[in-house]
């Protein structure tokens, strides 16, 4: 993916209100071909409303959604054929087998015949459930259901996939497997939008980050761009020291260039007769950027 790749999904000035409360207040972002975009925001920021709007489940009061350059109207599901929506809920039928669930959702997405059979077999291998394909899924683990939940949304080979908290409540092994699966889709050319509260994962996996709050986009860019725009690129140096009187404390220093700052910092400690017990260096994180932008107050 490059910065001049074609825009596949674009949200322009999205407004949506419930009574007097504005859930979306001008939110906007664009997704490029092959890009992996993190859509972040505190609780109540408007993420779910935005995803539901893109999925055609909500109607915007004002604004536009364009998929591959075509403006989407709310109930035009045919135009959304290129979209794959992975809901946060395990939206599957527990009394059906894994294969039956895939068959049902594949058909509702317009896939049928031999193509569907091939896609189901592919999906079962992809989510590592081929050996459990004919078991009812109500006995599956959370991780297995999560993987199936994703597979049910991509059988029709959408070019844009929206994932709402796809790894919530699963163990590290399953999470790792899910990221591998999604990377495979991206490698095949799909573009992905991920909403998550797992900021460390978003930071590691995504190409770009969009942060919304109060229903509008408050920041967008790569992690480096966001860091530069907000908290700056300084590293945090945390020194745990014991002074001459035996008291232990942690000192925090913000530095631009570690190679220049560290020798002088250590020299200063020696001069002050402080014993260095531990040294920790922290690069700017998405979490710090996020808290800087959205504040530390609880959102309920």
């Amino acid at each position: 993916m490059t910065s001049d790749s074609a825009v596949v999904l674009e949200i322009r000035e999205a407004h949506k209100s419930y009574g007097t409360r504005a859930a979306l207040n001008g939110a906007a972002f664009s997704l490029r071909k092959g890009e992996w975009l993190a859509l972040l925001g505190p609780n109540g920021a408007g993420k779910t409303t935005l995803v539901r709007t893109i999925a055609g489940r909500l109607q915007l009061d004002r604004g536009e959604i364009a998929l591959h350059g075509q403006t989407l109207s709310p109930q035009d599901q045919a135009a959304r054929r290129q979209l794959g929506i992975v809901p946060q809920e395990l939206a599957l039928y527990p009394n059906l087998t894994a294969r039956e669930n895939l068959d049902i959702f594949g058909r509702f997405h317009g896939v049928g015949g031999q193509e569907l059979k091939d896609k189901i077999n592919w999906a079962l291998d992809w989510i590592a459930l081929a050996d459990r394909a004919n078991e009812r899924i109500k006995g599956f683990s959370g991780g297995m259901k999560r993987r199936l939940n994703i597979a049910a949304a991509v059988l029709h080979q959408p070019s844009v996939i929206m994932l709402d908290e796809p790894t919530v409540g699963v163990d590290p092994q399953s999470r790792e497997r899910i990221w591998q699966m999604l990377n495979q889709l991206r490698a095949e050319g799909a573009s992905l939008v991920l909403t998550t509260h797992q900021l460390d994962e978003a930071q590691t996996i995504c190409d770009r980050i969009v942060i919304i709050d109060g229903g509008r986009t408050i920041a967008a860019g790569t992690l480096e761009e966001l860091i530069t725009q907000t908290i700056g690129p300084q590293r945090g140096v945390f020194c745990k020291v014991r002074d001459a009187q035996g008291a232990v404390e942690e000192e925090h220093h913000a530095v631009d260039d570690l190679s220049e700052a560290l020798p002088s910092l250590l020299s200063t400690l020696k001069t002050q007769n402080k014993q260095l017990l531990d040294l920790r260096i922290q690069a700017p994180t998405l979490q710090a950027v996020f808290l800087h932008l959205t504040g530390k107050e609880l959102r309920e």
Partner: peptide, 9 residues
């Protein structure tokens, strides 16, 4: 599931 169904065709 309803959301998912109605997000399909």
């Amino acid at each position: 599931t309803l959301d998912r169904l109605l997000s399909s065709q």
